[in-house]
Nucleic acid binder design. Structure first.
Length: 299
DNA sequence: TAACTTGTTTAAAC
DNA sequence: TGTTTAAACAAGTT
């Protein structure tokens, strides 16, 4: 089910090393970074430079929350939550394709949409920026006490797949009755929150399960393989990408072509499968590129 | 230049 | 009716 060019490898036009997107592991890293930079410090000045970032309540919040201290920062699915103390609403961020939080002066960023100045502390950054070159990200201000319900009801998020190893029964329960292909099912945020297009291909390759198999047709052994592959992928990705700034689309993982893609199959069409050497193939499912090894993922 | 990249929402199809 | 797929959307890269 490929198309012309799907086995052409480096001639495919994809940039080597690019293509990381903010999925669960990247959002986890950014949430940890934001916690490290802000928890326990006062929000001295909030500068919403792009009101289009506001998907609800952020304009008001940015004046309301000034002076408050950050209590904690946490992740839910692909969202990051900055929670002030004093019963104030929380700031919820979604990064879409190119959004990221960085510790930097806004003058060094061409697309700073929100600038958070913190009470100065020796040895810690005084400014945090929501940087988003394509301006597709979103932000909301939501009452802190009802965030769990908001994520469930308004954002329609299913349970978290990580941390804590979810067992075979969890995956069979959440996805086992979906008739669409397992690759598509893995991306359904209302069933399991946080897995995107990259994760879906990578997890199925690790599990040795075909992306075309209907979710409702997976065997117990295949669900067990998925259950093992998910934390393996997430842990590996967090370990590999941890750092002060997530490298997204514009980055080149290595300067030379062909240098270490961070993924085993994603955007690796035409290259040999790291496990068996057969060429990785690419095709579309529900409008999204799927990458897989037909030899390793026969089941 | 047109096509492609993403997650989410909405509309249409099954 | 419920489930699934496709299209549209944002904007930047190739």
């Amino acid at each position: 089910m490929g198309w012309a060019g799907s086995t052409e490898g480096r001639a495919s036009g994809y940039a080597e090393g690019g293509g990381r997107m903010p999925e669960l592991p990247e959002v986890e890293i950014m949430s940890r970074n934001l916690a490290r930079w802000t928890v326990g410090r006062r929000l001295q000045q909030l500068d919403l430079r792009d009101e289009a970032l506001d998907s609800g309540g952020v304009v008001a919040w940015s004046s309301q929350a000034e002076g408050a201290t950050v209590r904690r920062v946490w992740r839910r699915g692909k969202y990051t939550v900055l929670e002030p103390d004093g019963g104030l609403p929380s700031l919820v961020l979604h990064f879409r394709m190119t959004g990221k939080v960085v510790a930097a002066e806004p003058s060094t960023r061409s697309s700073a949409r929100l600038v958070i100045r913190l009470s100065p502390v020796q040895g810690r950054p005084n400014c945090v920026v929501f940087d988003d070159s394509r301006r597709l990200g979103n932000a909301w201000a939501q009452p802190t006490h009802s965030l769990d319900r908001w994520f469930e009801v308004s954002r329609k998020l299913g349970p978290e797949p990580w941390p804590g190893v979810q067992d075979t029964a969890f995956w069979a329960q959440q996805l086992g009755r979906i008739r669409s292909p397992i690759k598509v099912a893995l991306m359904r945020q209302d069933r399991v929150a946080g897995l995107g297009n990259i994760a879906a291909s990578e997890i199925l390759w690790r599990a040795g399960v075909s992306p075309t198999l209907r979710a409702c047709a997976l065997s117990a052994e295949q669900w067990a393989a998925v259950a093992r592959a998910v934390p393996a992928f997430i842990d590996d990705t967090i370990e590999r990408e941890s750092g002060d700034e997530i490298a997204y689309v514009n980055s080149r993982g290595g300067s030379a072509r062909g240098v270490s893609s961070p993924f085993f199959v994603y955007r690796c069409a035409g290259r040999p499968c790291p496990r068996c050497g057969e060429p990785i193939a690419r095709f579309k499912q529900s409008g999204r590129s799927t990458f897989w090894c037909a030899s390793c993922q026969a089941g």
